[in-house]
Design a protein around this nucleic acid. Structure first.
Length: 300
RNA sequence: GCCGCGGUAGCUCAGUGGUAGAGCGUCUCUCUGAAAAAGAGAAAGUCGUCAGUUCAAUUCUGACCCGCGGCA
């Protein structure tokens, strides 16, 4: 096992819920161990979405290079497969400079795709087909899938419309069954998770939200709208963008917006944890010192 | 003090003479190009208290307690 691992690129992966202080930990570690950061965040990839996503500022970067921020237009949908490819490239690039890649972010699915090298069917989304299938019921879609791809039908969730549509999309385009997931572990990762109680996290979330408001989060959403994004699209992004957009359309009051933001962000943080809490590969740390020590042992 | 309305799951409320439901929340879980997305499952109530009618009461009756509104 060890000899096998020796040839693989070492990466340090930092996970944790929103507001737990991942970015700061990543920067400190990267600075100490000559690293660069690869973000794993499905919203921070978009340009113009800064305050609402909690994107790190130039100053906070402390000179450490960051990859996969501001690489997509919010007008188009960025996908997990694109992420996988671009993150892979970024890691190679960092590696060639003899630096250590530090993957840091809150999107569990992206991290999983990257570290487990999941091979996802190479069929790009067909939005008109999806729209068409959207009109059918889950039952109908399941029946269709069962006929076209019984293998995939066996392990899919019958009530999950979105996934049923995707599976049908794949079989329609390729004519072949949705393949069983293959995993390839290209990297040798060290997983570091930030341990924090839900109560403490909730306090941080509330404090941070008030700060974001002060920093002009509402104006940011207005700007995005003025740049041509539809309200529907803004709501699709979720959390800050969703609730501020509803507020700006006068669908809800300011109080309702704040209340929904608190509850939704807390909910989101719990959902994030469900990706990691039972993962035995993760080293849960409580302090920077601990993280530094584990990283040092791992790298040298 | 009188009149009216209400007291059912952590919260907001349905409901029925045969010991109860929903939404939200909580907890588990899934995750095959939207993942801040999409979906699944579970736990949870002495139905305000006491008494009466009844084979049977959360449901009907009475008293009491608590909350809200109105009149004094």
């Amino acid at each position: 096992m060890e000899s096998k691992r020796r040839n693989k690129t070492k990466i340090v992966v930092i996970v944790g819920p929103t507001a737990s202080g991942k970015s700061n930990l990543a920067v400190r570690l990267a600075k100490k161990f000559k690293g660069e950061i690869v973000s794993a965040d499905s919203r921070q990839v978009y340009k113009g979405m800064d305050i609402g996503t909690g994107k790190i500022t130039k100053k906070e970067m402390m000179g450490v290079s960051h990859h996969l921020l501001d690489i997509a237009s919010p007008k188009r949908k960025f996908t997990a497969a694109q992420y996988q490819e671009l993150a892979g490239k970024a890691i190679k690039k960092i590696n060639r400079k003899n630096k250590i890649p530090f993957v840091c972010g809150g999107t569990g699915f992206y991290i999983k795709m990257l570290t487990e090298g999941m091979t996802v069917p190479e069929v790009s989304p067909d939005w008109s087909l999806r729209k068409e299938l959207e009109n059918k019921s889950e039952k109908e879609l399941y029946a269709t899938l069962k006929e076209m791809d019984p293998r995939r039908a066996r392990n899919i969730e019958k009530d999950n419309k979105r996934r049923l549509i995707r599976a049908i999309e794949v079989i329609k385009k390729t004519g072949r069954s949705v393949p069983v997931i293959k995993k390839s572990f290209e990297y040798n990762p060290l997983f570091i998770g930030i341990k924090i109680s839900q109560e403490e996290l909730n306090q941080k979330i509330e404090k941070r939200l008030l700060e974001r408001i002060k920093q002009g989060m509402i104006g940011e959403v207005k700007d995005l709208r003025n740049s041509g994004l539809s309200w529907k699209r803004l709501e699709e992004f979720g959390l800050e963008y969703k609730w501020v957009a509803k507020y700006l359309q006068n669908k809800i009051s300011y109080e309702k917006m704040m209340e929904s933001l608190f509850t939704d962000i807390k909910k989101f943080s719990k959902k994030q944890m469900s990706w990691w809490k039972n993962d035995e590969k993760i080293n849960w740390i409580k302090s920077y010192k601990e993280a530094e020590k584990i990283t040092e042992n791992f790298l040298y």
